[in-house]
Amino acid sequence: MKNSPRRRRARLALPATLLLAVTAGTLTACGGAASAPARSASAASAASVASASSPAAPPPPASHRPAGSTLHMIDNGGHRLAFHVTPGRLPAIVLDAGGGLDSSYWKDLVPKLAAATGSEIITYDRAGLGDSDAVPGPWNVQSAVGDLRTGLRELGVTHDVILVAHSQAGEIATYFTRADPRLVSGAVLVDASLPELYTDEEIARLVAASEPQVEAAKKNPSTKKNRQLIATAESFVPLHRAYHRASWPDGVPATVIVSEKTPFEGSPKDARRWREAAAAFVKAGPERTLVTADGSSHDIPVDRPGLVLGEIEKMAAARG
């Protein structure tokens, strides 16, 4: 049977967004009870100073913030970052959304996670997203790692962290954990971008497929979405060649949740490679678990929130 015109158009449009699928989230629907333990006086002071380190900015609308959270605007090298903290005990659970997405992605999950675990829950906006300041130039994963490290330090979170990373945030989680594995108790990697995917062949496929959309974005760089795409594309090749050589520390447990449909639902070859990368990551070290989100798109936290919540709960219970 012949494909309908609508289906043919979908197949033709898909390749232009492959790079974004793993780094900027545009293939997804997002494009589409104990009290907290007392921290040291210096840590509490640092958190207070951090939240007042920049001129007061209008708070984000209530619909953007997780219920029961407090906004902290933290300065790192001259740009401000928005962190939202829901109080609780350790281990602290840090939720990091995929490329092009801000902390509001998690707002419905945060209250459920706080109630289920009693943990402190932290979400934040990476530079250029949500209420955080933009940083000019190509996207730099090490800068993103530095922003997260500074934010947690200023909030007094210096140990016993569980990272929950979706899509592009898997790259930040990998480098963050490699830099200080003693800080991270465990991780839940939700359809995350993993080093095993980025062979030279796959990098070339993603870049070539996305070139038309990148060129179109350059003609109108005034929108936040286009600026994110341009910044990602400018650094994509060298960053991902280096990322392919990165490895996850053996001493840090990780649960990998891979979607059934992957970011490449219309490209079977790339979808297979995405799933194979997840399986290879899990086999490469101890204390790693692979979970498949049956029926889910790349947007697992929206399609299967109960599954994500359950896996985070398991990790928190095991590491708490």
Score class of each variant (00 low, 15 high):
K261W: 09
T177D: 01
G186C: 10
R273F: 13
A97M: 06
Q213D: 14
Q228W: 13
D102G: 14
K219F: 08
P238G: 08
G266V: 15
V282C: 02
R272H: 12
D180T: 10
T289V: 05
V141N: 11
V188G: 00
A179P: 05
P87I: 02
A173Y: 12
D131V: 12
L20M: 13
L113E: 02
R6Q: 11
R149V: 12
S167N: 04
A52T: 12
R288Y: 04
P221W: 01
A317E: 11
D147V: 11
L129Q: 08
T86F: 07
E202D: 15
S296L: 07
K219Q: 09
R178S: 14
E202L: 15
A216E: 02
P138M: 01
E311G: 01
R8I: 10
A192T: 06
D191M: 02
D270K: 09
D147P: 11
P59R: 04
V164A: 03
P58R: 08
Q168N: 15
L18Y: 12
S222N: 14
G130Q: 00
A217L: 06
E260C: 01
S167V: 03
L12Y: 03
R65C: 11
H244W: 03
L95S: 00
V161F: 01
M1T: 14
L155P: 01
L194S: 06
E171P: 04
S69M: 05
V157G: 02
A50C: 04
G151Q: 04
D303Y: 10
R80K: 12
R273I: 13
G306E: 10
K261L: 11
R6C: 09
S296A: 10
V258Q: 05
S167G: 04
A47V: 00
A144W: 12
R8P: 08
H240R: 08
D160Q: 07
S132Q: 07
S259C: 02
P5Y: 08
L18F: 12
A38L: 11
E234Y: 03
A134I: 08
V302H: 10
I122Y: 02
A115V: 08
A233N: 09
V49I: 05
V291M: 07
T117K: 00
D200H: 13
I162Q: 00
A50V: 03
I203V: 08
P87M: 00
V110W: 04
L290V: 05
E311Q: 02
E120M: 09
A44R: 07
V252T: 01
A116L: 08
R178Y: 12
T26N: 11
P87R: 01
V291A: 06
A114M: 03
A277G: 05
R272W: 13
L101C: 15
A62R: 14
R6G: 09
M1D: 14
P301Q: 01
S132I: 09
T174K: 06
I300T: 05
E276N: 09
Y105V: 10
E313T: 12
E260W: 00
D299N: 12
H84P: 10
L206N: 13
L148I: 03
S51T: 07
A127N: 11
L239N: 15
A21R: 05
S45T: 15
A192P: 06
S247H: 10
H240L: 07
V214P: 03
L290E: 05
V308R: 02
P111E: 08
